[in-house]
Design a protein around this nucleic acid. Structure first.
Lengths: 171, 171
DNA sequence: TAGTTCATGTAATATGTTACATGATTTA
DNA sequence: TAAATCATGTAACATATTACATGAACTA
Protein backbone atom coordinates (compact mmCIF):
# COMPACT_ATOMS: atom_id res chain seq x y z
CA UNK A 1 0.00 0.00 0.00
CA UNK A 2 0.92 3.66 -0.28
CA UNK A 3 0.84 5.98 2.73
CA UNK A 4 -2.31 7.49 1.28
CA UNK A 5 -3.95 4.03 0.98
CA UNK A 6 -3.05 3.30 4.60
CA UNK A 7 -4.56 6.57 5.73
CA UNK A 8 -7.78 5.78 3.87
CA UNK A 9 -7.91 2.23 5.21
CA UNK A 10 -7.41 3.50 8.75
CA UNK A 11 -10.10 6.15 8.32
CA UNK A 12 -12.61 3.79 6.79
CA UNK A 13 -12.29 0.39 8.39
CA UNK A 14 -10.30 0.64 11.60
CA UNK A 15 -11.08 4.22 12.67
CA UNK A 16 -12.95 3.13 15.77
CA UNK A 17 -9.95 1.36 17.28
CA UNK A 18 -6.95 2.99 15.63
CA UNK A 19 -6.30 6.37 14.09
CA UNK A 20 -3.28 8.22 12.68
CA UNK A 21 -2.58 11.49 10.89
CA UNK A 22 -1.02 11.34 7.45
CA UNK A 23 2.05 13.16 8.76
CA UNK A 24 2.67 10.34 11.22
CA UNK A 25 2.02 7.63 8.64
CA UNK A 26 4.55 9.01 6.13
CA UNK A 27 7.28 9.54 8.74
CA UNK A 28 6.67 6.12 10.31
CA UNK A 29 6.83 4.36 6.92
CA UNK A 30 10.21 5.99 6.27
CA UNK A 31 11.43 4.84 9.68
CA UNK A 32 10.21 1.28 9.07
CA UNK A 33 12.09 1.32 5.78
CA UNK A 34 15.31 2.42 7.53
CA UNK A 35 14.87 -0.57 9.87
CA UNK A 36 14.33 -2.87 6.86
CA UNK A 37 10.84 -3.84 8.04
CA UNK A 38 9.32 -2.56 4.77
CA UNK A 39 10.60 -1.69 1.31
CA UNK A 40 9.20 0.94 -1.04
CA UNK A 41 9.31 1.88 -4.68
CA UNK A 42 7.69 4.30 -7.09
CA UNK A 43 6.20 1.68 -9.41
CA UNK A 44 5.17 3.72 -12.42
CA UNK A 45 7.88 6.02 -13.75
CA UNK A 46 5.33 8.01 -15.73
CA UNK A 47 3.07 8.51 -12.73
CA UNK A 48 3.46 12.16 -11.80
CA UNK A 49 1.54 11.63 -8.57
CA UNK A 50 4.68 9.93 -7.17
CA UNK A 51 2.75 7.06 -5.62
CA UNK A 52 5.24 5.25 -3.36
CA UNK A 53 4.12 1.67 -2.75
CA UNK A 54 5.31 -0.05 0.45
CA UNK A 55 5.71 -3.82 0.92
CA UNK A 56 6.40 -5.66 4.17
CA UNK A 57 9.70 -7.60 4.29
CA UNK A 58 10.34 -11.02 5.86
CA UNK A 59 11.96 -9.20 8.80
CA UNK A 60 8.85 -7.03 9.08
CA UNK A 61 6.55 -10.05 9.06
CA UNK A 62 8.75 -11.69 11.73
CA UNK A 63 8.56 -8.53 13.89
CA UNK A 64 4.75 -8.50 13.52
CA UNK A 65 4.59 -12.19 14.52
CA UNK A 66 6.87 -11.53 17.50
CA UNK A 67 4.59 -8.68 18.64
CA UNK A 68 1.45 -10.82 18.24
CA UNK A 69 3.05 -13.66 20.23
CA UNK A 70 3.32 -11.46 23.34
CA UNK A 71 -0.21 -11.35 24.80
CA UNK A 72 -1.60 -8.16 26.36
CA UNK A 73 -1.63 -8.37 30.13
CA UNK A 74 -3.38 -5.09 30.97
CA UNK A 75 -6.66 -3.44 30.12
CA UNK A 76 -6.28 -1.04 27.22
CA UNK A 77 -6.01 2.47 28.73
CA UNK A 78 -8.65 4.90 27.49
CA UNK A 79 -8.78 8.66 27.23
CA UNK A 80 -12.29 9.98 26.74
CA UNK A 81 -12.48 13.76 26.66
CA UNK A 82 -16.29 13.80 26.80
CA UNK A 83 -16.26 11.96 30.14
CA UNK A 84 -13.66 14.37 31.55
CA UNK A 85 -15.91 17.24 30.49
CA UNK A 86 -19.00 15.62 32.07
CA UNK A 87 -17.05 15.00 35.28
CA UNK A 88 -16.56 18.78 35.64
CA UNK A 89 -19.93 19.84 34.19
CA UNK A 90 -22.01 20.28 37.36
CA UNK A 91 -21.55 24.08 37.38
CA UNK A 92 -22.28 24.43 33.65
CA UNK A 93 -25.51 25.69 32.16
CA UNK A 94 -27.86 22.71 31.89
CA UNK A 95 -28.90 23.48 28.31
CA UNK A 96 -25.29 23.81 27.16
CA UNK A 97 -24.49 20.35 28.51
CA UNK A 98 -27.66 18.91 26.95
CA UNK A 99 -26.84 20.42 23.55
CA UNK A 100 -23.35 18.94 23.69
CA UNK A 101 -24.70 15.47 24.56
CA UNK A 102 -27.43 15.65 21.90
CA UNK A 103 -24.80 16.52 19.31
CA UNK A 104 -22.68 13.59 20.45
CA UNK A 105 -25.78 11.41 20.12
CA UNK A 106 -26.11 12.41 16.47
CA UNK A 107 -22.43 11.63 15.83
CA UNK A 108 -22.70 8.19 17.43
CA UNK A 109 -25.96 7.42 15.62
CA UNK A 110 -24.23 8.18 12.33
CA UNK A 111 -21.20 6.10 13.33
CA UNK A 112 -23.46 3.16 14.14
CA UNK A 113 -25.04 3.44 10.70
CA UNK A 114 -21.57 3.49 9.10
CA UNK A 115 -20.70 0.21 10.86
CA UNK A 116 -24.08 -1.31 9.95
CA UNK A 117 -23.41 -0.45 6.31
CA UNK A 118 -20.04 -2.23 6.16
CA UNK A 119 -20.23 -5.39 4.06
CA UNK A 120 -17.16 -7.47 4.90
CA UNK A 121 -18.30 -10.39 2.74
CA UNK A 122 -18.38 -8.20 -0.36
CA UNK A 123 -14.81 -7.15 0.34
CA UNK A 124 -13.74 -10.76 0.93
CA UNK A 125 -15.30 -11.85 -2.39
CA UNK A 126 -13.49 -9.06 -4.22
CA UNK A 127 -10.15 -10.13 -2.71
CA UNK A 128 -10.95 -13.75 -3.56
CA UNK A 129 -11.54 -12.82 -7.19
CA UNK A 130 -8.01 -11.36 -7.18
CA UNK A 131 -6.62 -14.59 -5.79
CA UNK A 132 -6.10 -13.55 -2.18
CA UNK A 133 -7.92 -15.70 0.36
CA UNK A 134 -8.94 -13.68 3.38
CA UNK A 135 -11.79 -15.92 4.56
CA UNK A 136 -10.20 -16.60 7.93
CA UNK A 137 -9.21 -12.91 8.30
CA UNK A 138 -12.86 -12.00 7.69
CA UNK A 139 -13.93 -13.73 10.90
CA UNK A 140 -11.43 -11.71 12.95
CA UNK A 141 -12.31 -8.46 11.17
CA UNK A 142 -15.93 -9.25 12.02
CA UNK A 143 -14.99 -9.44 15.74
CA UNK A 144 -13.57 -5.91 15.66
CA UNK A 145 -16.61 -4.69 13.72
CA UNK A 146 -18.89 -6.36 16.29
CA UNK A 147 -17.01 -4.45 18.99
CA UNK A 148 -17.65 -1.19 17.14
CA UNK A 149 -21.35 -2.00 16.80
CA UNK A 150 -21.67 -2.96 20.49
CA UNK A 151 -19.73 0.13 21.54
CA UNK A 152 -21.96 2.49 19.56
CA UNK A 153 -25.17 0.84 20.81
CA UNK A 154 -23.92 1.01 24.41
CA UNK A 155 -22.92 4.64 23.97
CA UNK A 156 -26.29 5.62 22.46
CA UNK A 157 -28.18 3.93 25.32
CA UNK A 158 -25.93 5.64 27.88
CA UNK A 159 -26.31 9.04 26.18
CA UNK A 160 -30.13 8.66 26.13
CA UNK A 161 -30.26 7.80 29.83
CA UNK A 162 -27.86 10.62 30.72
CA UNK A 163 -29.74 13.20 28.64
CA UNK A 164 -33.05 12.13 30.24
CA UNK A 165 -31.67 12.54 33.75
CA UNK A 166 -30.16 15.95 33.08
CA UNK A 167 -33.46 17.08 31.53
CA UNK A 168 -35.24 16.22 34.79
CA UNK A 169 -32.70 18.12 36.94
CA UNK A 170 -33.41 21.49 38.57
CA UNK A 171 -31.62 24.47 36.97
CA UNK B 1 -4.08 18.59 46.13
CA UNK B 2 -0.51 17.38 45.81
CA UNK B 3 0.78 15.71 42.67
CA UNK B 4 0.68 12.43 44.55
CA UNK B 5 -2.97 12.98 45.53
CA UNK B 6 -3.84 13.75 41.92
CA UNK B 7 -2.13 10.57 40.75
CA UNK B 8 -4.11 8.53 43.31
CA UNK B 9 -7.39 10.22 42.41
CA UNK B 10 -6.78 9.55 38.73
CA UNK B 11 -5.88 5.90 39.40
CA UNK B 12 -8.85 5.28 41.66
CA UNK B 13 -11.83 7.24 40.39
CA UNK B 14 -11.23 8.41 36.81
CA UNK B 15 -8.87 5.67 35.56
CA UNK B 16 -11.38 4.38 33.02
CA UNK B 17 -11.59 7.67 31.14
CA UNK B 18 -8.32 9.43 31.98
CA UNK B 19 -4.88 8.30 32.99
CA UNK B 20 -1.49 9.95 33.55
CA UNK B 21 1.95 8.94 34.82
CA UNK B 22 3.32 10.71 37.88
CA UNK B 23 6.17 12.10 35.77
CA UNK B 24 3.66 13.88 33.56
CA UNK B 25 1.60 15.12 36.49
CA UNK B 26 4.54 16.74 38.29
CA UNK B 27 5.90 18.43 35.15
CA UNK B 28 2.43 19.62 34.09
CA UNK B 29 1.73 21.10 37.53
CA UNK B 30 4.98 23.09 37.31
CA UNK B 31 3.98 24.33 33.87
CA UNK B 32 0.50 25.33 35.09
CA UNK B 33 2.19 27.24 37.92
CA UNK B 34 4.42 29.10 35.45
CA UNK B 35 1.25 30.11 33.59
CA UNK B 36 -0.35 31.27 36.88
CA UNK B 37 -3.20 28.78 36.53
CA UNK B 38 -2.29 27.18 39.86
CA UNK B 39 -0.22 28.16 42.91
CA UNK B 40 1.69 25.82 45.19
CA UNK B 41 3.27 25.81 48.61
CA UNK B 42 4.90 23.41 51.03
CA UNK B 43 2.40 23.89 53.83
CA UNK B 44 4.14 22.26 56.79
CA UNK B 45 7.74 23.42 57.28
CA UNK B 46 8.49 20.43 59.52
CA UNK B 47 7.13 17.95 56.98
CA UNK B 48 10.18 16.19 55.64
CA UNK B 49 8.11 14.50 52.91
CA UNK B 50 8.05 17.87 51.10
CA UNK B 51 4.36 17.64 50.30
CA UNK B 52 3.68 20.44 47.78
CA UNK B 53 0.00 21.39 47.79
CA UNK B 54 -1.44 22.95 44.63
CA UNK B 55 -4.44 25.30 44.49
CA UNK B 56 -6.27 26.52 41.39
CA UNK B 57 -6.18 30.30 40.80
CA UNK B 58 -8.98 32.54 39.52
CA UNK B 59 -7.22 32.55 36.15
CA UNK B 60 -7.08 28.75 36.27
CA UNK B 61 -10.79 28.50 37.04
CA UNK B 62 -11.52 30.95 34.20
CA UNK B 63 -9.45 28.82 31.80
CA UNK B 64 -11.34 25.68 32.91
CA UNK B 65 -14.67 27.45 32.36
CA UNK B 66 -13.52 28.65 28.94
CA UNK B 67 -12.57 25.08 27.99
CA UNK B 68 -15.90 23.70 29.22
CA UNK B 69 -17.81 26.35 27.27
CA UNK B 70 -16.46 25.04 23.96
CA UNK B 71 -18.49 21.90 23.21
CA UNK B 72 -16.88 18.84 21.63
CA UNK B 73 -17.82 18.51 17.97
CA UNK B 74 -16.17 15.15 17.18
CA UNK B 75 -16.36 11.62 18.47
CA UNK B 76 -13.59 10.94 20.98
CA UNK B 77 -10.84 9.07 19.09
CA UNK B 78 -9.96 5.68 20.57
CA UNK B 79 -6.87 3.52 20.42
CA UNK B 80 -7.53 -0.05 21.46
CA UNK B 81 -4.47 -2.27 21.16
CA UNK B 82 -6.47 -5.46 21.76
CA UNK B 83 -8.63 -4.78 18.69
CA UNK B 84 -5.55 -4.10 16.55
CA UNK B 85 -4.15 -7.43 17.72
CA UNK B 86 -7.41 -9.26 16.94
CA UNK B 87 -7.55 -7.64 13.50
CA UNK B 88 -4.24 -9.35 12.65
CA UNK B 89 -4.84 -12.57 14.60
CA UNK B 90 -6.18 -14.88 11.87
CA UNK B 91 -2.79 -16.59 11.34
CA UNK B 92 -2.14 -16.99 15.09
CA UNK B 93 -2.51 -20.21 17.04
CA UNK B 94 -6.16 -20.48 18.08
CA UNK B 95 -5.38 -21.38 21.70
CA UNK B 96 -2.96 -18.46 22.08
CA UNK B 97 -5.69 -16.05 20.97
CA UNK B 98 -8.24 -17.70 23.27
CA UNK B 99 -5.88 -17.49 26.26
CA UNK B 100 -5.31 -13.82 25.60
CA UNK B 101 -9.05 -13.11 25.37
CA UNK B 102 -9.82 -15.18 28.49
CA UNK B 103 -7.22 -13.23 30.42
CA UNK B 104 -8.75 -9.97 29.20
CA UNK B 105 -12.12 -11.29 30.35
CA UNK B 106 -10.75 -11.74 33.88
CA UNK B 107 -9.33 -8.20 33.87
CA UNK B 108 -12.64 -6.70 32.72
CA UNK B 109 -14.64 -8.80 35.20
CA UNK B 110 -12.44 -7.42 38.00
CA UNK B 111 -12.77 -3.87 36.64
CA UNK B 112 -16.57 -4.21 36.61
CA UNK B 113 -16.49 -5.29 40.24
CA UNK B 114 -14.31 -2.29 41.12
CA UNK B 115 -16.91 0.05 39.58
CA UNK B 116 -19.76 -1.81 41.28
CA UNK B 117 -18.00 -1.34 44.61
CA UNK B 118 -17.67 2.43 44.28
CA UNK B 119 -19.97 4.24 46.71
CA UNK B 120 -20.25 7.83 45.51
CA UNK B 121 -22.86 8.73 48.14
CA UNK B 122 -20.47 7.79 50.95
CA UNK B 123 -17.85 10.11 49.45
CA UNK B 124 -20.40 12.92 49.06
CA UNK B 125 -21.47 12.59 52.72
CA UNK B 126 -17.85 12.74 53.85
CA UNK B 127 -17.29 15.93 51.82
CA UNK B 128 -20.55 17.34 53.20
CA UNK B 129 -19.35 16.74 56.76
CA UNK B 130 -16.29 18.86 55.91
CA UNK B 131 -18.54 21.64 54.63
CA UNK B 132 -18.11 21.11 50.89
CA UNK B 133 -21.36 20.52 49.01
CA UNK B 134 -20.81 18.23 46.05
CA UNK B 135 -24.39 16.98 45.70
CA UNK B 136 -24.78 18.32 42.17
CA UNK B 137 -21.28 17.07 41.23
CA UNK B 138 -22.32 13.61 42.44
CA UNK B 139 -24.94 13.33 39.70
CA UNK B 140 -22.35 14.06 37.01
CA UNK B 141 -19.77 11.74 38.55
CA UNK B 142 -22.49 9.08 38.52
CA UNK B 143 -22.89 9.58 34.74
CA UNK B 144 -19.20 8.82 34.16
CA UNK B 145 -19.40 5.82 36.51
CA UNK B 146 -22.48 4.59 34.63
CA UNK B 147 -20.45 4.81 31.44
CA UNK B 148 -17.71 2.68 33.01
CA UNK B 149 -20.26 0.09 34.14
CA UNK B 150 -21.94 -0.03 30.74
CA UNK B 151 -18.57 -0.24 28.98
CA UNK B 152 -17.39 -3.19 31.09
CA UNK B 153 -20.69 -5.05 30.68
CA UNK B 154 -20.61 -4.50 26.93
CA UNK B 155 -16.98 -5.63 26.76
CA UNK B 156 -17.65 -8.80 28.79
CA UNK B 157 -20.60 -9.74 26.56
CA UNK B 158 -18.51 -9.08 23.44
CA UNK B 159 -15.55 -11.10 24.80
CA UNK B 160 -17.86 -14.03 25.65
CA UNK B 161 -19.37 -14.06 22.16
CA UNK B 162 -15.94 -13.72 20.51
CA UNK B 163 -14.39 -16.47 22.63
CA UNK B 164 -17.32 -18.80 21.83
CA UNK B 165 -16.95 -18.22 18.11
CA UNK B 166 -13.20 -18.81 18.09
CA UNK B 167 -13.69 -22.01 20.12
CA UNK B 168 -15.98 -23.34 17.39
CA UNK B 169 -13.49 -22.50 14.59
CA UNK B 170 -11.40 -25.10 12.77
CA UNK B 171 -7.69 -25.09 13.67
C1' DT C 1 -12.40 26.59 -14.48
C1' DA C 2 -13.19 26.04 -9.75
C1' DG C 3 -13.48 22.80 -6.17
C1' DT C 4 -12.50 18.30 -4.48
C1' DT C 5 -9.74 14.43 -4.11
C1' DC C 6 -5.31 12.24 -4.76
C1' DA C 7 -0.65 12.26 -3.17
C1' DT C 8 3.61 13.24 -0.34
C1' DG C 9 6.26 15.41 2.52
C1' DT C 10 8.62 18.69 6.58
C1' DA C 11 8.74 21.61 10.89
C1' DA C 12 7.42 22.93 15.22
C1' DT C 13 5.21 21.81 19.12
C1' DA C 14 2.74 19.02 22.48
C1' DT C 15 1.93 14.94 24.86
C1' DG C 16 3.04 10.50 26.74
C1' DT C 17 6.19 6.67 28.40
C1' DT C 18 10.10 4.46 30.50
C1' DA C 19 13.98 4.68 33.17
C1' DC C 20 16.72 6.81 36.51
C1' DA C 21 17.12 8.91 41.12
C1' DT C 22 16.33 9.99 46.00
C1' DG C 23 14.62 9.82 50.57
C1' DA C 24 10.85 9.70 54.45
C1' DT C 25 7.15 7.14 56.75
C1' DT C 26 4.35 3.38 57.85
C1' DT C 27 3.27 -1.45 58.47
C1' DA C 28 4.06 -6.32 59.02
C1' DT D 1 14.29 -4.56 60.11
C1' DA D 2 12.52 -5.39 55.69
C1' DA D 3 8.97 -4.29 52.56
C1' DA D 4 5.45 -1.36 51.11
C1' DT D 5 3.78 3.09 50.59
C1' DC D 6 4.33 8.07 50.55
C1' DA D 7 6.40 11.74 48.03
C1' DT D 8 8.88 14.40 44.34
C1' DG D 9 11.49 15.09 40.77
C1' DT D 10 14.63 14.78 36.01
C1' DA D 11 16.27 12.75 31.49
C1' DA D 12 15.83 10.41 27.41
C1' DC D 13 13.00 8.82 24.21
C1' DA D 14 8.66 7.87 21.68
C1' DT D 15 4.42 9.22 19.90
C1' DA D 16 0.93 12.48 18.34
C1' DT D 17 -0.89 16.92 16.61
C1' DT D 18 -1.11 21.15 14.02
C1' DA D 19 0.53 23.97 10.63
C1' DC D 20 2.99 24.74 6.57
C1' DA D 21 3.94 23.44 1.73
C1' DT D 22 3.41 21.69 -2.98
C1' DG D 23 1.40 19.88 -7.06
C1' DA D 24 -1.39 16.39 -10.09
C1' DA D 25 -5.84 14.42 -11.44
C1' DC D 26 -10.56 14.26 -11.53
C1' DT D 27 -15.37 16.10 -11.41
C1' DA D 28 -19.19 19.28 -11.60
Amino acid sequence: MTGYDLKRTLDNSTAHFWHAYHSQIYTTLRKLEQDNLVTSEVQDEDDKLNRRVYTITDAGRAELDRWLAQPMREIAPTKDELLVRLFFSAPRDKEAVLNELRFQRQLHQRQLEVYQGIDLQHFVDAMDARGTNVERDREFWQFTLNNGLAYEQMTLAWLDATIARIESMDD
